[in-house]
Write a protein that binds this DNA or RNA. Sequence first.
DNA 1: ACAAAAGTGTTGAGAGTACACCCATGC
DNA 2: GCATGGGTGTACTCTCAACACTTTTGT
Lengths: 234, 234
Amino acid sequence: MSVELPANYDPSVFERPSVTVDVVIFSLVEDKLKVLLIKRQAAPFANMWAIPGSFVKMNESLEKAAVRALADETGVTDVYTEQLYTFGEPNRDPRTRVITVAYFALVPHDAIHHKVGRDASETGWFPISQLPPLAFDHAEIVEYAYRRLRYKLEYSSVGFRLLPDVFTLTELQTAYEIILGEELDKRNFRRKILSAEILEETGEKKKEGEGRPAMLYRYREDAVAEVKTRRLFP
Amino acid sequence: MSVELPANYDPSVFERPSVTVDVVIFSLVEDKLKVLLIKRQAAPFANMWAIPGSFVKMNESLEKAAVRALADETGVTDVYTEQLYTFGEPNRDPRTRVITVAYFALVPHDAIHHKVGRDASETGWFPISQLPPLAFDHAEIVEYAYRRLRYKLEYSSVGFRLLPDVFTLTELQTAYEIILGEELDKRNFRRKILSAEILEETGEKKKEGEGRPAMLYRYREDAVAEVKTRRLFP
DNA sequence: ACAAAAGTGTTGAGAGTACACCCATGC
DNA sequence: GCATGGGTGTACTCTCAACACTTTTGT
């Protein structure tokens, strides 16, 4: 214990909590917004469902830890991730003090391949509206992530990140409708999304399916991420 | 070290980082938006300025730790605080791994009384546009906080939190102008802020000053915090 | 009466919303 | 030729932005 330094400047005199990252992984599966959960095997909360997570290694950034936890469960790298909030109530983990930095991730369903060797009964995709009881404070974390997702959808363009690289406008609109939980007008949706200039035509058309083939679009990587919205002031 | 539990379920097998909270404290002083800084005395970064912070105690929530750090420096409790972001790059503190949960706080200047016994040369209010070099990654944290503050001002009603309990509409408008860095139209500002129904008249008028006395307003505690903005969808 | 700040309405432009029909393809 | 989903334009409403003069008080 240092005597030269004032106590509140010296990390070594303070007890240290454990730090984890937990990731709320969203995907669109079977026309529903679903969340990836893992069945816990060990106590506490053995046999309960939880969101994937990991302890933060000493030489690893939080972002990297989150991406690692995500890749471990889905096999997917190069995914949209965003830090959500840090949950640190003293007794959220009954074993010891554990502070968790929560992230949320949007994964296109076609990119997922679950880890080989993991028992399928251990992981599952659950509709956001029909979640089982969750371990720790994970219900609160998922709730928070879902709110943030809906919110972001309204003023930015993250919706694409749930779709394959190329997609039709109808597929995109359906994704928005599923997440926002309301129907959108087809003409207005198209005008708005196209005038935001965040998409480009691929020139290809979708072959499969009935009816007239649809134009395929792709996200413009050079597009500005945040779509400007109406501001309260000025 | 446990053998029964899989390693990634057992906190005890992982090295633990130190966790701090750091608070970006904003106030309006002399018609400028200023940030409270503290001069570090100990290494590392001795004699450099830093934002106030504290280690998180084992039985204390993050929010409580932030409020405590804030009260220690300003003597103010009952202040608007909000969790900002968690910074955790492995080498942000040269001594050891320190993860910091950053908060920002809005303090009415008239409520501040600096801690007795603290040397005045140790703390100072700095205009956001003229900050000295800061310790650690604190410049990044302040930058992030400032962006968030401007952003929040545009779609919510946090502006009041920088003013005394009662204030005139001109004072409120001036606060918005200082933070946003642009002039606002008086009539439009008043119409907008009044139609948001977040203020109530006190019935009193401001006596001091030249010219016609202004009505005094107060924030309506029952007002909804978020003012609805135009949404991208639908 | 004059200086100083408070307070108050209207108009034009742009964005949002509601709404219905023709088009391309596969079977 | 018909079933299926894709693609398109217009009129109304509402919100935002720009703009100048009258009112109340102190000296």
